[in-house]
Design a binder for these strands. Structure first.
Lengths: 99, 99
DNA sequence: CCAACCCATAGCATCGGTGCTATGGGTTGG
DNA sequence: CCAACCCATAGCACCGATGCTATGGGTTGG
């Protein structure tokens, strides 16, 4: 049942470490990106293996990422975006901007 | 005068490696983020040392990042965003969206 | 001329993400 | 019942980003 772990699990896990108050946000972003990739992938009707091949990675890497197991790097995000026919968008938004 | 190195320098450097066609984009993003941080920092009237302290890193790390010397990780971007009173925004945008 | 900043860069240790292989449990379809 | 998928996870090697200290050159102000 530790299948789809949810956000609170990850939060507890990461917040236990020292100086994690900032990494916390990065972990949240990673988690959300994982969710989004899963949705996009399923929208394409692809398996993790198929996405992995399209993005130049392995099924295990896709699974790890979708589960929020790691905070992904920009190159990986870029490759996933390409495979899913998206554009990776990273920017410093004004704090007033809507989510 | 290898002071402010420009984008073409970095491009040549990175594209020389194999399988760099995707990492290329990530490098471009890193470069642009570096520029933006520099602008934001200067907008605040801060030195690299001041920003470094606010973001929990060292002056050398800030310099390296602003120069595009590395592709930054999400935790680092998050800390910089906070220090600069911004919100880090990462998403998979539709390819049709404007830049 | 010297002190105090600015920034760029080098060298090194460490940490963590990625790539890889292999496994295991679940489900479906023959 | 078995084959062929699905996905999650572990263990490992490797690479690269980060953190750190220490420079060095440039500029400014005394």
């Amino acid at each position: 049942m530790s299948d789809r772990l949810d956000w609170n699990d990850l939060r507890e896990r990461r917040m236990a470490e020292p100086g994690a108050a900032e990494t916390y946000e990065a972990t949240r972003i990673a988690f959300e990106l994982g969710q989004e990739v899963r949705h996009l992938r399923e929208g394409h009707g692809w398996s993790q293996s198929q996405l992995a091949r399209a993005a130049g990675m392995t099924q295990s890497a896709v699974a790890r990422f979708e589960a929020g197991g790691t905070v992904p790097t920009l190159p990986v995000l870029e490759r996933l975006a390409r495979a899913l026919d998206r554009r990776l968008d990273v920017r410093f938004a004004s704090n007033a901007d809507a989510a």
